[in-house]
């Protein structure tokens, strides 16, 4: 078994009876980056909070690194770093002191050099003696990340780590994540930026209404569910698809200036060659052709709509 986090039949009903998680099962492999996608209110934060010990599960178990989070919480929590979604920080303390506090809370001996190193990686070193309240929102987000890393976790949960972080720094952050992965840290992140999941995750899970709809290797998912489209720009616009081409299920693009052919990449034959031949036979002049691959976003939106 190489699962470092093992979630079995996890259920969570908040006071008032709302079921935020419905019997979730999830195995997270050591060293992987798992991205959790899902609409607002899907239960992503609840899932993370329950694994980390902030909320108490109503049913089911969570085992982290062999430690049950309920009965052996010390062992489990020692391994976990958490970056919460909200910017929850002590405003009156300096950045460095909040990091020292976090590290100490996890029982680790003081090591300022290590903490400063984290701050450097997150481009925050020049703010180390600033009070937290004097930082911008994006900087606070990075302080939260630094706090989570301060005690050298083996499993890192990032709940929307890049919300409110500018594009340059987002790239920096991805580099930090890549470095952590290289060190063998397991990373679970939630995000609403699908390109982010696409860029850094090994596996992607889609969660909606407290249930995991799908969890799969990112490349596999895109290959299986990803549809590719061939767009043929026409020299002269058409108003309808010629009868001879009916079998291809073509769509007409904007203003009739193009024809769009959707095909499945996992199929043996894509049908592109015959289509192009048939187009020519039908007397249509092609100005340009291009293909495009559907993104995780299309897959995600499709999935969530299906279950809505």
């Amino acid at each position: 078994m190489s699962s470092i986090v093992s979630v079995s039949s996890l259920g969570k009903a908040y006071a008032g009876g709302f079921e935020a998680l419905k019997s979730v099962n999830l195995e997270i492999e050591e060293g992987e980056i798992l991205a959790l996608l899902g609409p607002n209110g899907a239960g992503k934060t609840t899932l993370i909070s329950t694994i980390c010990g902030i909320t108490v599960p109503t049913s089911g178990t969570v085992v982290v690194g062999g430690f049950d989070t309920q009965t052996a919480f010390r062992g489990a929590r020692n391994l976990i770093g958490l970056v919460p979604q909200e910017l929850n920080l002590e405003p009156f303390e300096t950045v460095m002191n909040t990091l020292r506090f976090s590290r100490g809370l996890f029982g680790k001996p003081r090591n300022d050099a290590y903490l400063e190193d984290i701050l450097k990686k997150l481009s925050l070193h020049d703010k180390k003696d600033s009070k937290v309240m004097m930082l911008s929102g994006g900087m606070k987000r990075r302080v939260l990340i630094a706090k989570a890393l301060s005690h050298e976790p083996r499993v890192l949960f990032l709940d929307e780590p890049t919300a409110g972080v500018d594009v340059d720094l987002r790239k920096d952050m991805w580099n930090v994540v890549a470095d952590l992965k290289a060190d063998g840290v397991t990373i679970i992140l939630t995000t609403h930026y699908i390109e982010e999941a696409e860029a850094i995750a090994d596996r992607v899970g889609v969660i909606s209404k407290g249930e995991i709809l799908l969890i799969q290797d990112k490349a596999e998912m895109m290959a299986q569910m990803g549809k590719k489209q061939l767009v043929v720009d026409l020299a002269a616009p058409v108003t309808k698809v010629p009868a001879a081409l009916a079998a291809y299920g073509l769509e007409i693009g904007p203003d009739g200036a193009s024809l769009i052919y959707t095909y499945d990449t996992k199929g043996e034959r894509t049908g592109i060659t015959t289509l192009l031949n048939d187009l020519q036979k039908a007397g249509l002049q092609m100005a340009d052709i291009q293909t495009r691959q559907s993104s995780l976003e299309d897959i995600f939106v499709g999935l969530v709509k299906e279950t809505a």
Partner: peptide, 17 residues
């Protein structure tokens, strides 16, 4: 204060009893 500021998450997720 930690409850009010939300920083209590850290206490609750730390290996402390």
């Amino acid at each position: 204060f930690p409850k009010f500021m939300g920083t209590i998450y850290e206490l609750l997720s730390a290996p402390v009893n």
